[in-house]
């Protein structure tokens, strides 16, 4: 993997400091970070926990593609995209995206582009567990 891209899919808790340390760079004027967190409600129903599963080798390829596209589209130096799988509780962190750039705008834009694209293309699925049962998110039209 190129030295300006960090991709990870893991069943261990994600570490903000790892992503931050990876993208830090002397040439950069800013670092933009998006941290996804598990919310306690969906459409008014209390969520107990989430369960994330992935088609791991393809997820890594798609995440790498997003990182490469981000580097091509925006004036950024480094990008980290880390995603957790397995059981996550309220406030846990399923995803972190960190981007460094010389000027802030490109870091903000790349960060938004990366999370928006991840939600559309990366083969990872979450199941929401409620008091009354469980449901695969997005699976019913």
């Amino acid at each position: 993997m190129s030295d300006n891209i960090s991709i990870k899919v893991t069943s261990c808790p994600l570490k903000l400091e790892d992503c931050y340390a990876f993208v830090e760079d002397p040439s950069c004027g800013g670092i933009s970070v998006f941290v996804g967190t598990v919310r306690n409600q969906t459409k008014g129903k209390d969520v107990k926990r989430l369960d994330f599963s992935a088609y791991e080798p393809m997820a890594i390829k798609e995440m790498k593609k997003i990182a490469e596209e981000s580097l091509a589209k925006f004036e950024i130096s480094k990008i980290a995209i880390h995603h957790a799988i397995g059981k996550l509780s309220i406030k846990d962190i399923p995803v972190i995206i960190a981007v460094s750039s010389a000027h802030r705008k490109d870091a903000f834009r790349a960060c938004e582009y990366a999370i928006d694209t991840l939600k559309e293309t990366v083969p990872i699925w979450k199941k929401e567990h409620f008091e009354s049962g469980e449901v695969w998110v997005n699976s019913h039209p």
Binding site: A59, K61, K119, V122, K126
Partner: peptide, 26 residues
């Protein structure tokens, strides 16, 4: 084989074909 395939692509011997419902990562 770990890449999205459009409708017109042909399957081949020994392919690994994944069924991908709407993703919901993030």
């Amino acid at each position: 084989n770990e890449a999205y395939a459009s409708d017109d692509i042909l399957l081949n011997e020994n392919d690994v074909v994944a069924l991908i419902p709407p993703v919901s990562g993030g």
